[in-house]
């Protein structure tokens, strides 16, 4: 155990890299996913078509392959590009996560009743105002829980970036475990750190959900329909919204 203490700095550095990576991917993946989700739900055929290919394609490829591709193959496609491991890992994870978020955004937007679009249009609201003030606020309530679920899954999936040699928390744990010959303690610490990274996000999700349901007085059934999608995601299934008959589980996602 004493040995392990001297190896805490590398573990902390690994944890820090994981946090940095997840912050980048969380922000970039959310923005990209949101935009693609809007395209998925749009009335413009070309946008729908292109975004459908994007999401279906990326959801059909293992994350591991995406990461290997962005690290080894992408620089070949873009001459002169010199991606760091962090950069490659961030790009790969962002692509992967955005595809899942896009599907959640699409589902949430399509769950807003037709009449809301018509009322907004009949009042003369243009495309931007309609989405900004009428559709998205209502869809938000539906999309946030599965969205948080995807981000939680992403934090844990980020451990896969060790395959491209990025020293994240998992890789640091592996190194420390082997050097100290105490893999048990090393991985207990690593697991605990992942938990403490994930837990606040889960809490935030719950808090945000509550806040939305206070300000939004609509029957709460939409949330209950979507909760299985969250649990499904944590187990790496595509978030097909209405399916998955499992009972709703804690969105805090500490699995």
């Amino acid at each position: 155990m004493g040995d392990l203490l001297t190896y805490l700095p590398p573990l902390a550095r690994g944890a820090w890299m994981t946090i940095i990576l997840c912050l980048i991917v969380g922000v970039a993946g959310s923005i990209l996913g949101f935009v693609i989700g809007l395209a998925r739900a749009s009335s413009i055929g070309v946008l729908r078509w292109v975004s459908a290919i994007y999401t279906n394609f990326l959801r059909g490829i293992p994350l591991l392959i995406i990461l290997l591709f962005t690290y080894f193959a992408l620089p070949l496609l873009i001459p002169g590009a010199d991606f760091s491991q962090l950069m490659s890992g961030a790009i790969g994870l962002t692509l992967f996560v955005s595809a899942y978020i896009a599907e959640v955004v699409r589902g949430a937007i399509e769950s807003v009743p037709r009449g809301q679009y018509e009322a907004a249009e009949a009042l003369g609201l243009g495309f931007f105002n309609k989405f900004r003030y009428v559709i998205v606020p209502q869809a938000m309530r539906v999309m946030v829980p599965p969205w948080v679920g995807i981000l939680l899954a992403m934090i844990k999936d980020s451990s896969l970036v060790s395959v491209i040699g990025f020293v994240d928390l998992t890789q640091a744990g592996k190194i420390v475990g082997t050097t100290t010959m105490q893999p048990l303690w090393a991985f207990v610490v690593v697991g605990a750190v992942y938990f403490f990274i994930c837990y606040p996000l889960g809490r935030f999700g719950r808090w945000y959900e509550k806040r939305l349901s206070i300000s939004l007085a609509r029957p709460p059934d939409t949330l209950q329909i979507l909760m299985p999608a969250v649990t499904g995601l944590l187990e790496h299934e595509p978030p097909e919204l209405p399916e998955s008959p499992e009972s709703p589980r804690d969105a805090g996602g500490t699995t």
Binding site: P113, A119, G126, V134
Partner: peptide, 23 residues
């Protein structure tokens, strides 16, 4: 509309004010 189609996330006053303000 037959189904009213009020915006459920906005208070009554904001429902009425949305279009004049934004459009």
């Amino acid at each position: 509309f037959q189904q009213f189609n009020l915006f459920p996330h906005l208070k009554v006053l904001d429902n009425i004010m949305l279009a004049p303000l934004k459009v």
